[in-house]
Computed example of a mutant assay.
Amino acid sequence: MHAEAVIRAETAPPRPGRRGLGQETRIVELRGQAPLLPRIVAVPGTGAEVVLVGGAAGPLGGDELAVRIEVGAGARLTVRTAAAAVVLPGTGEPARQRVEITVADGGELDWLPEPAVVAAGARFETALHVTLGRATRLLLRETLLLGRAAEPCGDAVSRWDIAAEGRPLLRQVSAYGPGAKPGWRGPAGTAGGTVVATELRFPDIPGTTPRLPSAPGRAVCELAGGGLLTTVMATDALTADRLLRGQPAVSRAVPAPSPSAPPVPLVGSPS
């Protein structure tokens, strides 16, 4: 299956009856193909929000999915997905997803998809390419669940390539699963966790959001070009979300691992 979704937002003068609110953001192009079906969500304020609704199961092995998001100068846009995606084996080829984001001068974007669950035997390759103009604001989040409950995970490769004002801001590649290099589940990898969540805030302006320190299960890195990269490892998506928000993790029992998966320690538990 090959599918593409396009979302383009630009500013426009306020509509009658909404004076004093400043320029509004309007969606000027919105199209997609199953399973990438974008829908506009009504929200208060001058920003716009779009939700991608899954119109089919998957992605399956061999699928090629693409999302293109363009935010015009001064526009404010939030893009979410309606539910988690479960990546399943298919033709034997990887399921691939490419997200292309462009934010013009003064634009703001929140890209907040729900988790992607990489089932046993599946192969998932995701690539995120972002181009930022001057005085932009960006919030990105990606959550990978490495296998369903009590099963080994498939292979997942995540690539982020982000540039701001023509200069590289972040380039990284992360790989998990049987096809990754040995040690990916060790202390320098997921530390035994089955959920990996990554968040980038740009720019990182002191005082606008609480500055979280690195802690067990959470690594916080200041980027040389500005911005804050936070990566958390956990045993479930709820704990990962709480670690990203700086909330106390809730202790949860770990399901019995499958024979091909080593035991997974609780995040923050004594060794």
Score class of each variant (00 low, 15 high):
residue 1 M to K: 08
residue 35 P to Q: 10
residue 192 G to N: 00
residue 108 E to V: 10
residue 219 A to E: 12
residue 231 T to G: 09
residue 41 V to F: 00
residue 186 G to H: 06
residue 188 A to W: 11
residue 77 L to D: 09
residue 150 A to G: 13
residue 183 G to L: 05
residue 12 A to T: 14
residue 16 P to Y: 11
residue 5 A to Q: 12
residue 111 W to L: 10
residue 32 G to A: 06
residue 196 V to G: 09
residue 83 A to Q: 07
residue 244 L to A: 15
residue 263 P to R: 10
residue 140 L to T: 05
residue 104 A to T: 02
residue 204 D to T: 03
residue 141 R to S: 12
residue 120 A to W: 02
residue 169 L to W: 12
residue 9 A to T: 13
residue 82 A to F: 02
residue 210 P to R: 06
residue 53 V to M: 14
residue 258 S to A: 15
residue 76 R to F: 05
residue 85 A to L: 09
residue 248 P to Q: 07
residue 95 A to Q: 13
residue 2 H to G: 14
residue 24 E to V: 07
residue 197 A to G: 12
residue 127 A to G: 12
residue 131 T to E: 11
residue 75 A to C: 10
residue 42 A to P: 08
residue 63 D to W: 05
residue 51 V to H: 01
residue 15 R to F: 05
residue 3 A to G: 09
residue 42 A to L: 14
residue 26 R to W: 08
residue 167 R to C: 00
residue 120 A to N: 09
residue 129 H to P: 01
residue 170 L to C: 10
residue 252 R to H: 15
residue 13 P to G: 03
residue 171 R to V: 02
residue 1 M to H: 14
residue 162 I to F: 01
residue 112 L to D: 12
residue 143 T to W: 01
residue 221 C to I: 15
residue 53 V to K: 07
residue 260 S to I: 03
residue 228 L to N: 12
residue 82 A to H: 13
residue 100 E to V: 11
residue 48 A to K: 03
residue 69 I to D: 04
residue 193 G to Q: 01
residue 207 G to A: 12
